[in-house]
């Protein structure tokens, strides 16, 4: 039973990252009809937003303390971060400690801006071209973004630790111990997903976007500039991917190719959920996450060795062959 619970938690946790990325991919595909291979790169840039903020907060000035000496006998140099001198030592330390959650606020405008620039600067020109061309140009863009980050931050992973208060483990039940941050990640993703759905469901803007997803031409005929709204949706999708990346930092130290690793999986998730279906993407994300974690139980791998490595792909292949439109895909959309 304990094992069972742990696996479900593991699955929800993996699934929340898949679901967030797949949600963004589906937003872009459903609104703009573009297959975005650079989405993994957006996830990675999000993670590096928190690296950037962490570095920024740790900017410090040096003072020489003549009363102490370091191990070489020279006067000790003490580094004081600027935030500590501005907000007082306790408050400053707390701000630095909470840099990852703070990076969430910091990343939203940046990611929206990046998404906006990407759409206006590049992807706009590819609406009328084949899907193959869209895949290729975004694939190229993914390489470029990844290399830019590599040039700036180097090839090694950079730790972005969670705040001390949230970095321990929680005892959930007798014998079930689970890292707190992973639980936080799950709830965070639920909140983000809920927010996106609420935005689309309960605002006029969201209503117009949904109408545009269903029938772009008619919305255009009603005198609404749907392209402008879709551009904003691209920004929103980028922000969702970025947030997923920011919060993922403490689980896995950000490195420049983390996006590529997630990209393939999240495409599979989108296909399983149904191209263009938002609830499908989220459901498939959690479903595949749970499936994957159950497949990696030793009881299962003893029977079918290696199943944990391929289960997601296997499920995707079966789904694509027996139900081409995916779990919740609308009839006739990219079937």
């Amino acid at each position: 039973m304990d094992v069972f619970l742990t696996q479900i938690l593991n699955g929800l946790d993996k699934g929340s990252a898949y679901a967030l990325i797949a949600l963004g991919l589906t937003l872009i595909f459903g609104t703009l009809g573009v297959v975005n291979f650079a989405h993994g790169a957006l996830f990675m840039i999000g993670a590096f937003c928190s690296v950037f903020l962490q570095r920024l907060l740790n900017l410090s000035y040096e003072t020489v303390d003549p009363t102490k000496t370091d191990f070489l006998g020279n006067p000790a140099v003490i580094k004081t971060p600027y935030v500590e001198s501005w907000f007082g030592p306790e408050m400053g330390a707390a701000i630095i400690d909470w840099s990852v959650p703070l990076a969430v606020l910091f990343a939203i405008p940046i990611m929206i801006a990046i998404g906006f620039i990407m759409e206006r600067g590049l992807i706009k020109h590819f609406y009328k071209r084949e899907h193959a061309d869209q895949i290729l140009v975004t694939f190229g863009l993914a390489i470029v973004l990844q290399e830019v980050i590599k040039a700036v931050y180097g090839a090694n992973p950079i730790q972005t630790p969670a705040p001390d208060a949230l970095s321990g483990v929680a005892v959930l039940a007798e014998g079930v111990v689970y890292p707190v941050w992973r639980i936080v990640y799950f709830f965070f993703s639920v909140v983000v997903i809920g927010a996106v759905f609420a935005f689309l469901q309960f605002t006029t803007f969201g209503m117009v976007v949904r109408a545009g997803m269903a029938d772009r031409e008619t919305v255009g005929l009603l005198g609404i500039d749907i392209d402008k709204r879709f551009t904003l949706m691209f920004g929103l999708a980028a922000a969702v991917a970025g947030l997923a990346g920011v919060m993922y930092g403490p689980i896995n130290a950000p490195n420049y190719h983390m996006g590529m690793d997630f990209l393939v999986l999240s495409f599979v998730v989108v296909v399983v959920g149904g191209m263009g279906s938002l609830p499908g993407a989220v459901a498939a994300g959690f479903l595949l996450g749970i499936l994957e974690s159950f497949a990696s139980m030793t009881a299962v791998t003893d029977i079918i060795p290696g199943i944990n490595q391929i289960i997601i792909y296997l499920v995707a292949i079966i789904i694509l062959l027996v139900r081409p439109r995916g779990l919740m895909g609308r009839k006739g959309v990219m079937e």
């Binding site: 297959v35 899907h131 193959a132 895949i135 393939v264 495409f267 599979v268 296909v271 191209m275 290696g306 490595q309 391929i310 792909y313 296997l314 995707a316 292949i317 694509l320 081409p324 990219m334």
Partner: peptide, 17 residues
Amino acid sequence: IYFSILTLAFAQMSFAL
């Protein structure tokens, strides 16, 4: 796009195996 993703899935499967 489905063909692309299917071949991608097969290749990643072979790689993982």
